[in-house]
């Protein structure tokens, strides 16, 4: 095995072009487990921790450009206001030790359907910046997940950053698991209100081969809010509409039975989370109250 330690981004891209099977390692919280348990023996490890810009974020117009290797702990500390959904999800990842190392770039690289970044990225609206010596590709996050633990990166590409739309309305994240720490999601759901474009977006994790948006639910709710003038009036959403939104979210799932939960349970739980999180974001939108809650 070779340990490649590029000091600059261009060097990292050159190394990945020269060794397309090299395994990038950022926080190592996925990669090292695989190596420790002999599930993976790559010929090259490509260490990304020396590359400063991967550990930085900045504001770019309507987006936050989040360096691929910024650890969850810093998202929690520094980006709670522009990226509330992602910050809530970051808070549920692993443990303090894991949040100090693990990154959104690593979560996208691993592309597990249970990854906690995915629902809030889908709900907020995000674009993955994939770069290689050939140039940069901007991949909408919903097109990034191509299968169970598969993503749209070409062998010579690395993730430089994720451009996440800054919140213009309330966002929520909810995750089902057995305790508050160290839990891989049985299923998870993110929701974001976008009053600027009068849209609602969702992201569902661990309930289909890839993270998914519940588009029919989003469209349904957006038309209810529009037709009944609720964006302006701030009146409560009719219980029947909330129910239908929840059912449509359940319907967007294509879950499996596994050790963490049955498909039936997952479908049910996604509906419950959809109903609850919609209640929370709508309350925050209409009354400006209800800070981050535990789901």
């Amino acid at each position: 095995m070779d340990f490649l330690r590029p000091a600059a981004w261009e060097e990292a891209l050159a190394a990945k072009a020269a060794h397309p099977t090299a395994v990038p390692i950022a926080g190592g919280t996925d990669v090292m487990v695989e190596i420790n348990f002999d599930h993976r023996r790559p010929a090259h490890l490509l260490d990304l921790t020396r590359i400063g810009e991967l550990h930085e974020w900045d504001e770019d117009g309507p987006d936050i450009r989040l360096g691929a290797a910024v650890p969850y702990a810093r998202i929690l500390d520094e980006l709670r206001t522009p990226l509330p959904g992602l910050a809530l999800a970051a808070h549920t990842v692993g443990s303090p030790q894991i949040r100090n190392r693990g990154s959104v770039g690593g979560n996208l690289g691993a592309a597990s359907p249970a990854g906690d970044s995915h629902p809030p990225l889908l709900a907020a609206g995000a674009v993955v910046e994939a770069e290689s010596v050939r140039g940069t590709r901007l991949i909408p996050v919903e097109e990034f997940y191509t299968g169970v633990k598969r993503n749209a990166l070409a062998p010579d590409e690395l993730i430089r950053a994720v451009r996440v739309r800054k919140a213009t309305g309330p966002q929520q994240f909810s995750k089902v698991g057995t305790r508050n720490a160290m839990v891989i999601a049985v299923c998870a759901l993110g929701i974001a209100l976008h009053p600027d474009s009068r849209t609602v977006r969702t992201g569902i994790g661990s309930a289909a081969p890839t993270p998914v948006r519940a588009r029919a639910a989003e469209d349904f709710l957006a038309s209810v809010l529009d037709e009944e003038g609720l964006w302006e009036s701030g009146r409560p959403i009719a219980p029947s509409a909330v129910r239908q939104f929840a059912e449509l979210c359940s319907g967007a799932c294509n879950p499996i039975d596994d050790v963490r939960g049955s498909a039936r349970y997952r479908r049910h739980a996604v509906g419950v989370m959809a109903r609850r999180t919609l209640g929370w974001v709508w309350q925050t939108y209409t009354r400006g109250e209800g800070e981050a809650r535990c789901a």
């Binding site: 340990f3 330690r5 390692i25 926080g27 190592g28 919280t29 990669v31 090292m32 487990v33 190596i35 420790n36 490890l45 260490d47 921790t49 702990a73 443990s95 303090p96 030790q97 894991i98 100090n100 190392r101």
Partner: peptide, 21 residues
């Protein structure tokens, strides 16, 4: 967490840090 150390002042699991890092 039984392998917890501070790396550049931040608590991490030493089992998940590659030696070269």
């Amino acid at each position: 967490g039984s392998c917890t150390v501070r790396l550049d002042g931040v608590p991490v699991c030493a089992c998940l840090v590659a030696a070269g890092q």
